[in-house]
């Protein structure tokens, strides 16, 4: 029993060492301390994404026009990825409509668009300050216009395995294809 306890303690400390904020480079966006709800209603921190390269974007799920296109662009990128990145890559969709996009809504959306966990992750938060913070870090703008509708930037952002921004298609400076070589440049 005691041995098990020590074992668990060791495991816990290893986990912590791997994802602890102190380990993060000082330009990592995973330094934020905000907590997010995933599609299973589990609270997670962005730092839990450490270890894998990430493609991230922000959307709202009742959106009819540009958001499905965002998902399509992410899927296109997924198809274009070379073998060594294909398995690794994590796709993260963050909803800025935490009020309507509950875990159940996120799961339904994932199912409808065949975005299976754990490759695809959905996150949201009811804390508008935290959503605004993340959006500011990836240079993504949004504004609520009327009930449940938003105007927002459009594009996807590439992060390295420790949460540093590698590049982005927001503002149409790059296309999805241009992001791929960035994952292989070591900072």
């Amino acid at each position: 029993m005691f041995k098990l306890f020590i074992f668990l303690l060791l495991q816990a400390s290893i986990c912590f060492a791997q994802t602890g904020p102190s380990e993060l480079p000082n330009d990592s966006i995973y330094q934020v301390k905000s907590k997010w709800d995933d599609q299973f209603g589990k609270k997670i921190e962005l730092a839990s994404l450490v270890g894998k390269p990430v493609v991230i974007s922000m959307i709202y799920l009742s959106c009819k026009f540009s958001c499905p296109t965002t998902v399509m662009h992410m899927k296109d990128l997924q198809k274009m990825l070379p073998e060594h990145l294909k398995n690794e890559m994590q796709f993260v969709l963050v909803s800025f409509d935490g009020k309507h996009d509950t875990p159940a809504v996120m799961r339904k959306y994932a199912e409808k668009h065949a975005l299976a966990f754990p490759k695809w992750r959905f996150l949201t938060s009811k804390n508008q300050q935290d959503v605004r913070e993340l959006s500011s870090l990836i240079d993504f703008k949004y504004k609520q216009i009327g009930k449940g509708d938003f105007e927002h930037s459009f594009g996807i952002v590439a992060l390295d395995e420790r949460g540093r921004v590698l590049g982005s298609t927001i503002g149409a400076a790059m296309t999805e294809k241009d992001l791929i070589p960035l994952f292989d440049t070591k900072k």
Partner: peptide, 20 residues
């Protein structure tokens, strides 16, 4: 302000991500 960067977002924002 909390949402300082949402001012003057236009309908064109979907095409112009940076909104500059």
């Amino acid at each position: 302000t909390l949402d300082f960067n949402s001012a003057m977002v236009t309908g064109e924002s979907r095409a112009d991500g940076s909104l500059d």
